[in-house]
C-alpha cells in the first residue's frame, strides 16, 4: 500500500512568493481605485460642462460661475487655500532646516561613535530616489 505523500515544508522563498502575489494584486486594486476615482470625477466635470454645449459659450459659463459665487464661499476657499499654502510652506521650511542642521549634528555624533550608522535618507530628510519603488 502506498504511504500518503508528506506535504513539503514551505521555505522563506515560498512565503515571499505568496506575499508578492497578493501584494501585486492589492497594488493593482489600489491603483485602479486611485486613478479610476480621479478619472470618474473629471468625467463628471466634463458631463456637467458638456450639458451646456451649444447653449453657452466658454465666456458665458465663466461669467455664470463667477456670478453664482458668494462672498462666504470665497472666504471658505481662501481659508482652505491658505491652509494648504501654509502647510506646504512649513514642510519646505522644515526640510530646509533639516538640511542646515543635520550635517553638523551627524559630524558631532561621529566623533563619539566613529561607526555610527545612517538611515541613508537624502540631505533634506526625504526618501532616496532609488528607494521609492
Amino acid at each position: 500500500m502506498a504511504t500518503p505523500s508528506q506535504k513539503p515544508t514551505r521555505t522563506e522563498s515560498d512565503y515571499q512568493l505568496s506575499y508578492k502575489k497578493i501584494d501585486s494584486v492589492t497594488t493593482v486594486i489600489r491603483d485602479i481605485v486611485k486613478w479610476g476615482g480621479i478619472g470618474f470625477v473629471v468625467y463628471c466635470g466634463y458631463l456637467s460642462v458638456a450639458a451646456l454645449a451649444g447653449r453657452s459659450t466658454g465666456a458665458n459659463i465663466f461669467v455664470k460661475i463667477l456670478g453664482d459665487a458668494k462672498v462666504s464661499n470665497g472666504l471658505i476657499a481662501l481659508l482652505i487655500g491658505g491652509g494648504w499654502v501654509y502647510g506646504i510652506g512649513q514642510q519646505y521650511l522644515r526640510r530646509r532646516n533639516i538640511q542646515r542642521l543635520v550635517s553638523a549634528k551627524n559630524a558631532l555624533e561621529r566623533k563619539l561613535d566613529p561607526n555610527r550608522t545612517s538611515s541613508h535618507l537624502t540631505e533634506r530628510g526625504t526618501t532616496r530616489p532609488g528607494d521609492e519603488i
Partner: peptide, 20 residues
C-alpha cells in the same frame, strides 16, 4: 443642476483626491 455647484463639487473632489 446648477453648473456652479457641479463644478465646485468637482474641484473640491479633485483637491481632496490630491490631498489624500
Amino acid at each position: 443642476m446648477n453648473l456652479y455647484v457641479a463644478l465646485k463639487s468637482v474641484s473640491a473632489l479633485i483637491a481632496l483626491w490630491f490631498f489624500v
